[in-house]
Structure formats: C-alpha cells, structure tokens
C-alpha cells in the first residue's frame, strides 16, 4: 500500500479551495443575490441567501475536492490488468464525525431559518392567522392592502381608504404593509419580486403577508402559480411612493373609482364566488 498522505492532501486542498471561494461567495456573489434591498424583508432574504451560500460552499467544495483528488490519485494506471483495491469496508470514526458534522449543520440551518422566519415573516404568506408580525417601526397600525387575484389579473383594495379597488399596487414608503391575498376562482400566487413578497391566492381563503417598505421604487407583480391559459400574461406593476405622493394618488383613485366602489361587495377578508366551472 502506498504511503502517500492522501487524507492530509485532500484536507489541505479543501482548505485552499475554501480560502479562495468563501470570500468570493460572501463578498462578491453575496450582495448580488436576490431579491435586493428594497424592503426589510427582501434585505432579510438576501442575508439569508448569503448565509446559506456560505454554509453550503464548504460542503460542495469538500465533495468536489474529494472527487477531483480521488479520481486523479486512485485512477487505475494500467487498465489492461484487472486488480482489486484494498478491502476497506468502512471506518467508524469517519462515519461518526460525518454524522455529527452534518447534523450540526442541518440543525444550525433549521434554527437559523426558523429564527429569521419568525422575526418578520420574511415576506411569505402566513395564512389567515399570521404569527410573525414585523415590529411596527412608527407605532402606526399597518396599512392593509387586499390583493384580489382572478383569471387573469390582480386588483388591489384599500380598506382604510373607503375600500377602493385599484388596478395598480401603490404603497407608501417606510410603512408596514399587511397584504391580504385572496382569489376569486383558482389558485394564483401574488409575487412582488422586488418587495420580497410571495403569497398564494386561494379562493375563499385569506393569506396574510407583511412587508416593511423602505425607499421609493417601482416593482413588478407576477403570478407565480399556474392559473390557466393566460398565466404567463398575469402581471402588472406597482410603485412605492413617498408618503405624501401616495396620499394624493389614493385620493385621486378614490374619486376616479367612486362610482365603481359603490357597486362593489362590502370589503371582506374572502369572497365566495359562484363555483365557476369550465371558464378556461
């Protein structure tokens, strides 16, 4: 048996690879990870993604370095002759430490994800009874916005502004927004990528998601759950506006849609439509 210190070589190569790759993934790739820093929640997701990437990089490198090394060092140098390798059937301490290491990593990831999730909801849909309500920055109650999905468009209702229903989602900056997502027909998914929000829209169900807006920007809303024929076309846009500008926008919308608002059903967390069949 050859005396080359294979194990030491693999470990050294792995450390070298980590020394190169870890700074790259954390400081070069990391800040570019989605979905950007437009809101508290989307920024939180970027931080999460960086941590996940930094945690999984050593694992990926360990596997890659090991296989790269093993395939080179243990290749059969004379394929004409069929010779067996040593009959090694396992190594208890390697197995033990592998189990310990991976368990610790997994528990760390789960704990980390749970803490991050419970802190501010991370922008995800939490169902009708949310448990992770972000701290109110200003002490004001959150701005409620209802997202109504139907085949194949999103509309938005502002219960605190007379229940007006708009075709565009505009939000004030530096505000905690409480989305109530529901659907009138099939399952859709409300996805405002830049805001870091995604919540499925279910018929007869109220799905709550929170986001703390920061600075003004424009963003895109897309449907992220296959909802039939024109799913690919189910998108519209929105803006985060300075507060004063938002107030003037919503006032203008209330006036414009006043006749329509009178005919809308009263604001409700869910709407029970006729079970439409064969619409698509």
């Amino acid at each position: 048996m050859d005396k080359t210190p294979h194990f030491r070589n693999v470990v050294l190569l792995w450390l070298l690879a980590m020394a190169i790759m870890l700074p790259i993934v954390i400081w070069v790739l990391g800040p570019g990870l989605p979905p950007g820093n437009a809101t508290v929640q989307s920024h939180g997701q970027v931080v999460d993604n960086i941590v996940l990437l930094a945690t999984s990089t050593p694992v990926a490198l360990a596997v890659l370095v090991y296989f790269g090394y093993a395939l080179w060092a243990f290749r059969e140098r004379n394929p004409e002759v069929v010779l067996d390798g040593p009959a090694i059937r396992g190594n208890t301490s390697v197995q033990f430490w592998w189990l310990v290491t991976t368990t610790v990593m997994v528990l760390f990831l789960a704990a980390f994800g749970t803490i991050r999730l419970l802190a501010d909801g991370a922008g995800g849909g939490q169902g009708p009874n949310p448990i992770s309500i972000p701290p109110h920055a200003t002490g004001d109650p959150p701005l409620q916005v209802q997202v109504i999905a139907q085949q194949w468009e999103f509309t938005y209702r502002y219960p605190s502004y007379g229940g007006v229903e708009t075709r565009q989602l505009d939000l004030p900056a530096n505000t905690l927004v409480e989305f109530h997502v529901t659907s009138l027909d099939v399952i859709h998914s409300f996805w405002a990528y830049q805001l870091g929000v995604k919540a499925d829209a279910n018929p007869g169900e109220d799905n709550v998601a929170y986001v703390n807006t920061l600075r003004p920007l424009s963003f895109v809303v897309r449907c992220a759950e296959l909802c039939g024929l024109w799913h690919g076309y189910m998108f519209n846009s929105g803006r985060v506006l300075p507060k004063a500008q938002f107030v003037s926008w919503i006032t203008q919308q209330r006036q414009q849609y006043a006749p329509a608002t009178k005919n809308l059903p009263p604001y409700s967390k869910t709407y029970f439509p006729q079970p439409l069949r064969r619409g698509g």
């Binding site: 989605p34 979905p35 929640q41 939180g44 997701q45 999460d48 993604n49 996940l52 945690t55 999984s56 694992v59 990926a60 596997v63 890659l64 296989f67 990831l109 994800g113 991050r116 999730l117 991370a122 922008g123 995800g124 998914s189 996805w191 990528y193 870091g196 929000v197 995604k198 992220a224 759950e225």
Partner: peptide, 26 residues
C-alpha cells in the same frame, strides 16, 4: 454525483422558508 450535488445544494435554499419566498414557483 456532480449533478446531484448541485441539486442538493440548491435544495438547501428551497427548504429555507425565507429564501423560498423568492425561489418558490420560479
């Protein structure tokens, strides 16, 4: 081995709820 490694690593992002907010359905 190579492909499943990337499948597994990307699964870490999907299993993490905050990260899944963006990656789900994409």
């Amino acid at each position: 081995i190579f492909n499943f490694l990337w499948g597994g690593i990307s699964g870490v992002f999907l299993s993490d709820v905050p990260s899944d907010v963006t990656t789900h359905g994409s």
